[in-house]
Simulated assay, not measured.
Amino acid sequence: MITFNPNTKGPMRYSHTFERKVGGAELNFAIGCARLGLNTGWISKLGKDEFGRYILNFVRGEGIDTSEVELVDGYPTSLNFKEILEDGSGSTFYYRSNSPTSVLTKESIIEDYIKQSKVLHITGVFAAIDKKNPGIIKHAIEIAKKHGVKVSFDPNLRLKLWTLEEAKKTLLDFLPHVDIVLSGEEEAELLFGERTIEEYIEIFKDYGVEDIVLKRGEEGSVGYRNGEMVYADPVKPKSVVDTVGAGDGFNAGYVYSYLNGKSLEESLHFANVIGSMVVTVSGDNEGLPYVEDVLAKVNNEQKIER
């Protein structure tokens, strides 16, 4: 979608000018993966309008395969407006009724496209937009499972798009088919109630999830894999400018590490580093780093500025 970022911080009612950007949880994840050097594809529909063309060109410029992205008539490209407060936190206001993704169906999901992948990434955002979308996601998951493609899942709860009851019913139905769960701690609490970290891990294990990650923001992250549980310390950013997109960047870093055979501890640290880099830049995906920049931070290399 198109996201409009305010040029001033504070309540949106007092923001008079905005800068046009590109955003969206799944798209941010795809951009994050592409910048890390992964071959990445994106399945979507955009409005056949100037905003849709802008997004399509932007995504192509990031090196993402857009062969399964279509511009459609009669459906305006979705928008959101962001409110950014002085501490870097904020809110998002959505304008996405009559979304171009309304014309996306099960038939839009090409089996051969998913078959050639290593990971299918899904989130709760697409599921929330239209009542038919959970069925499309389940169809994509079935294809992935048929061909041994791993499924990664970020619940990405957006309670401005649907009720908690609707979200829980739908998202918990996905979990038995998920290989990698990338959940915020707050999202786990919404799904399962207030519990300890260890209890959240056990619940996800009961659903059959192999790789379990809980993102904890300033407190780092926790992961479980093959009987091992790791608490990964946070990576302190130089400053916090905008927290939007940090979770998507974390997800990209974790999946990148997973595909490159890194240990759980290495994967969590790599992902934490990316999260800390993203929050220092304003915008949904502008702060998503390239792999050499992440490796330089992981290896504590000195960057030569001039």
Rank of each mutant, 00 (worst) to 15 (best):
L164R: 11
K168Q: 12
V178F: 07
K145D: 09
P176H: 14
L120F: 04
K146V: 10
K145L: 05
Q116I: 10
W162I: 02
H121R: 11
L159P: 01
D130G: 15
H147I: 06
I109D: 02
H121D: 15
F126V: 05
D112R: 09
S152P: 01
K115Y: 05
I143F: 01
I109N: 03
N133T: 03
I122G: 11
F126G: 04
L161Q: 04
T163R: 06
K131S: 04
S152I: 00
G148W: 00
D130P: 03
E111K: 00
V119Q: 03
V151W: 02
E165W: 10
I129Q: 13
F174M: 08
H139T: 13
E165S: 09
K169C: 11
K132L: 05
D179C: 13
T163Y: 09
V151E: 04
E166D: 11
T170E: 13
D154S: 01
H177P: 14
A144C: 05
N156L: 14
E165Q: 09
T170D: 09
S117K: 02
P155W: 08
A144H: 09
E166R: 15
I114R: 14
T123R: 07
I136P: 05
I122L: 12
R158P: 09
K132A: 10
E165K: 06
P155F: 10
V149K: 00
H147W: 10
K145C: 15
A144L: 02
I137R: 06
E142Q: 07
Y113G: 00
I129V: 11
Y113P: 00
E165F: 11
K118L: 09
L161M: 13
